Amino acid sequence: MQVLRTDAARDVGVMPCQTTDPEVFQDREHQRLAKSLCAGCDLKRACRRYARTHREWGTWGGETNEERAAAGYLPRGSTKDYWQRRSVLPAS
């Protein structure tokens, strides 16, 4: 898995997600790494906003599926019931 250090990426005008295996941002196993790569990114807020608007899956702007669902932005194709069963959302 290739990961370019965040500060080095900024120095050359490249965002960490552009130089990292995309699976890192889709795989629950790598959520901590994905969040740490997003933490120092200047586009973090824009990326998060994009994911919320387009109902994306994965870690975007340092925010996971679960965190977006808890904030009321369900990923595309999922239902409120799905997130309630996973204890991300309170039962109705």
Rank of each mutant, 00 (worst) to 15 (best):
P75F: 05
G72R: 03
D7C: 09
R86H: 02
T79F: 09
Y50S: 12
T19E: 11
L33W: 00
W60V: 05
E63P: 01
T20N: 10
E66I: 03
C41N: 08
A70N: 08
G72C: 11
C17I: 01
M15P: 02
F25Q: 02
E63N: 03
L89N: 13
R86I: 04
E56H: 06
A51I: 02
R52F: 10
H30F: 07
A8M: 14
D27I: 04
V88H: 10
W57S: 07
R85M: 11
K80M: 13
L43T: 05
R55G: 01
R49D: 14
W57F: 07
T59Q: 01
H54E: 15
R49T: 13
A51T: 10
T59Y: 04
L74R: 09
Q31W: 01
P22T: 09
G13T: 01
V88K: 08
T19K: 02
R48T: 03
A91V: 14
C47M: 06
G40T: 00
V88C: 08
R76Q: 04
A70R: 13
E29H: 10
G77W: 05
L74Q: 05
R45T: 12
P90A: 08
H30T: 07
T53Y: 00
V12M: 14
T19V: 15
Y50I: 08
T19H: 03
E56P: 02
P90K: 04
A39F: 05
C17E: 03
R32Y: 05
N65C: 15
L74N: 08
K35G: 00
G58M: 11
Q26H: 10
R10G: 04
N65D: 15
Q2G: 09
A51L: 12
G62D: 12
T53N: 06
G77F: 07
G40A: 05
P75N: 10
G77C: 00
R28K: 14
D27E: 11
V3Y: 08
Q18D: 01
Q31T: 02
N65G: 13
A34D: 06
G40Y: 01
E56R: 08
R85W: 00
L74D: 09
E66L: 01
T6G: 11
M1F: 15
R5I: 09
T59A: 02
D81W: 08
Y50Q: 14
A46I: 14
R28F: 01
R10I: 10
L89Q: 06
S78R: 10
Q84T: 15
E63H: 01
G13F: 03
A71K: 14
V88Q: 09
A70V: 11
A9F: 12
R68S: 06
T59E: 02
W60H: 08
K80C: 06
E67D: 10
H30P: 03
R85V: 12
V88G: 01
W83H: 12
A91Y: 14
D21H: 15
V3P: 04
W57K: 11
R5M: 12
L43K: 05
K44F: 00
N65A: 14
V14W: 03
K35L: 01
V14N: 04
T6L: 03
C17D: 05
P16R: 10
C47A: 09
R85K: 15
P22Q: 04
W83F: 14
D11G: 12
L74M: 11
Q84C: 12
M15L: 09
Q18C: 07
R48D: 04
F25E: 04
V3N: 12
G58E: 01
A69I: 05
T53A: 07
D11C: 11
M1Q: 14
G62F: 13
E66Q: 13
